[in-house]
Structures are given as structure tokens and as C-alpha cells.
């Protein structure tokens, strides 16, 4: 089963200068861990936005878990993203006024699928606790405000939030750029470990080639596939 299948896809921003990205063929198998690399500005984030249905291709087709996302309505796409993706951003992506536990549980507020998946085995609180344990986070940390955490700790919270509710695909866009070397290694190992355990698909974007060796599958976006027409 394909997690994501890209077919003759073309996308262009409505901006000057227009940046465009063209991908002839890209298939990401379910449970595959993919390292997506490329120089800054080559369109990695843009591609992730296309995968998650935040952007729609101007031409061609992107199907996620067998669904052509262009056929969905806006609302269905929002729901689809909430249900099937777990997303880790670069940084600063926790809601500051919520506690750690509330931040982790947040996706269950907007995705009923995630919520039901959690509730089918136990309470949301129990799931949050379990995730924290797996990610080596102190249970006492759960009720603390976000700003009391280090960046490394915040990124672990972000992993927990991406994992809750067993999404099919985990997407991480340069999640390690704010971390130091030791934290970086710990972060990637934890993330891979969790995804392996859950058999989730992982798409990991980075321009840090030192992380490349953790992955079996690597896709490189180059200037040929994307282009900036001045």
C-alpha cells in the first residue's frame, strides 16, 4: 500500500518571482521512513504542504493513503490532514498557554478519528502519560507551562503531539535545526523508534546530511525538479 503517491505533479505559487516545483513520479510506501533533502529554498516545505493538502497541485495528482486529495472539499481536506497526519514543525509550535499535557492532547480536540483511536484503549490522559514515558519525559513535567521547557524538551513534546492517535503518516520539517548535536541524535533516534513501533510512515525533511545515515530511503529535491523563474 502506498502512503503517498505523486504523479506528474506541478505546482507554482501565485507570486513574483513564481517558484515552481515539478515532480514526475514519487512513491512513498506505508511504514517507509523517508529522508527528504535538498538545498534551502528548493521547495521541501512546499512539497510537504502539497502532501498534506495545504496546497493543491496545479497539475497532476497526489494521492495519500489511496485518496486523491484534490477531490476532497476544503473541509474534508482539513479533516483528512487532522486524521491521518502527525506534524512536527521546525520550532515554536506549541500553544504557549496550554500545559504540556494539553498540548500533546490537542490533536484529539480537532480529529475525532484520533480521539476515538485513543479512547478505544484508554483515556486521553493515560495516552498522554504513556507517550511521555516512552519519550523519557518526567510525569511531573506534564502540568508545567510550555515556556519552562528547554527547546529539546519542547521538541519531544512535539513528537508526542504528532504521535497521539496513531496517525498513518508523520511529517517532520527540519525539527532538529534548533537542537545541539547530542539532542539531535537523541531526537532522531526517539522519533525513528516510535515510528517503527507504530509502523507509521515518516517523512523527515532536513538539509542536515549527518542525519541521512539513519534512513534507508532518501529523496533529493534538486534544482532540476524545482525551479525559480526570474
Amino acid at each position: 500500500m502506498h502512503a503517498i503517491n505523486v504523479n506528474h505533479c506541478f505546482f507554482q505559487y501565485n507570486a513574483t518571482p513564481p517558484f515552481s516545483i515539478a515532480i514526475d513520479q514519487l512513491t512513498i510506501q506505508a511504514s517507509q521512513h523517508l529522508f527528504l533533502e535538498g538545498p534551502s529554498g528548493c521547495g521541501k516545505t512546499t512539497l510537504l504542504n502539497l502532501f498534506t493538502g495545504i496546497l493543491l497541485p496545479k497539475d497532476g495528482q497526489i494521492s495519500v493513503l489511496g485518496t486523491d486529495i484534490a477531490t476532497l472539499t476544503n473541509q474534508q481536506r482539513d479533516r483528512f490532514r487532522a486524521d491521518h497526519f502527525g506534524i512536527i514543525f521546525q520550532a515554536f509550535n506549541l500553544i504557549p498557554y496550554l500545559s504540556i499535557a494539553e498540548n500533546i492532547a490537542l490533536p484529539c480536540t480537532f480529529s475525532s478519528l484520533k480521539r476515538e483511536r485513543v479512547l478505544s484503549s484508554h483515556s486521553i490522559e493515560a495516552e498522554v502519560k504513556g507517550l511521555c514515558q516512552e519519550l523519557n519525559m518526567d510525569a511531573t513535567m506534564l502540568n508545567r507551562p510550555v515556556h519552562e521547557l528547554s527547546i529539546g524538551q519542547q521538541q519531544r513534546v512535539a513528537i508526542a503531539r504528532a504521535l497521539i492517535g496513531q496517525p498513518d503518516i508523520i511529517i517532520a520539517d527540519e525539527p532538529t535545526s534548533a537542537l545541539d548535536e547530542a539532542n539531535k541524535q537523541a531526537f532522531i533516534e526517539t522519533l525513528l523508534n516510535e515510528c517503527r513501533k507504530r509502523r507509521s510512515t515518516l517523512i523527515f525533511v532536513s538539509h542536515d546530511t549527518s542525519l541521512k545515515h539513519y534512513f534507508n530511503h532518501i529523496h533529493t529535491l534538486s534544482k532540476e525538479t524545482s525551479a525559480c523563474h526570474y
Binding site: Q75, F92, I95, P96, P107, F110, S111
Partner: peptide
């Protein structure tokens, strides 16, 4: 704005 964008990404509908 930032926080609302995160909520949107988490699946919050603009209506929400």
C-alpha cells in the same frame, strides 16, 4: 496568528 495557524494545522476548521 501563530497559535491559530497551529490550530488550523491540527485540523481546526476556519469556522472553529
Amino acid at each position: 496568528k501563530n497559535e491559530l495557524a497551529i490550530l488550523r494545522l491540527m485540523g481546526a476548521h476556519p469556522r472553529q
